[in-house]
Design a protein around this nucleic acid. Structure first.
Length: 195
DNA sequence: GAGGCGATTGGCT
DNA sequence: GCCAATCGCCTCG
């Protein structure tokens, strides 16, 4: 029988590599929360010593999860309104999940988002958290335990790199990664950078 | 303690 | 394209 990624998991140690490698490697991975979600098509890397990172100025109550073990979630409130999901990697580095291609539980996501417009269900860090029902209850939660479920990419993804969105410092660092040609990005990809 | 600014989004000019 | 919403954290006094 041909195998699918239906019951596979990310390899142990996936999150204990440099954060840029993890951010790029997450493109094509399937993320589900309580069985609802889709394929990751856009990520950004942030590391310690990175002026754009919440960790740049050291630990606070908000970013405590980022200083914990790799392979856990860091969920923070953005602009006092939205939630944003990160995957914690080594030494206070992490990957912001910016967009999914919705594949599983479309009805549930549409209900939470208040729209059925597929293209915008999960196109943006705040939107995907709303669609998947993610809030601070999942801050610090292990990514290999329910309600999280992560499945490896089925194919090698073509990925482009470009500057991160919405940052005022570290603006040159090309640590935003997008699935080439995806219609589900939060914004168009930077012009043909990376591979 | 006060004022300003976000790893954003949706609605309106 | 511009702007408000809304709150935790930073800077400055």
């Amino acid at each position: 029988m041909p195998s699918t990624n239906q019951d596979q998991r990310l390899p142990a140690g996936f999150f204990t590599r440099d954060v840029e490698t993890v951010a790029r490697g997450l493109i094509g991975t399937v993320l589900l929360v309580d069985g609802v979600g889709g394929m990751i098509v856009e990520t950004e890397a942030y590391d310690a010593g990175d002026p754009a990172s919440h960790c740049f100025r050291g630990p606070t109550a908000r970013n405590a999860s980022m200083f914990g073990a790799p392979g856990h979630a860091y969920v923070y409130r953005s602009y006092g309104i939205h939630w944003c999901l990160n995957f914690v990697c080594l030494t206070a580095s992490g990957v912001l999940i910016r967009a999914l291609e919705p594949t599983v539980g479309l009805d549930r996501m549409a209900e939470r988002r208040g729209t059925a417009e597929l293209r915008r269900l999960c196109a943006g860090p705040g939107r995907l958290c709303q669609a998947l029902g993610i809030d601070d209850r999942l801050d610090g939660h292990a990514l290999d335990l329910p309600p999280f479920e992560l499945r490896p990419a089925e194919r090698i993804a073509r990925v482009s790199a470009g500057p991160r969105i919405g940052v005022s410092r570290g603006v040159e660092t090309p640590w935003r990664f997008c699935l080439d040609g995806s219609r589900f990005l939060s914004r168009p990809a930077a012009r043909s950078a990376g591979s």
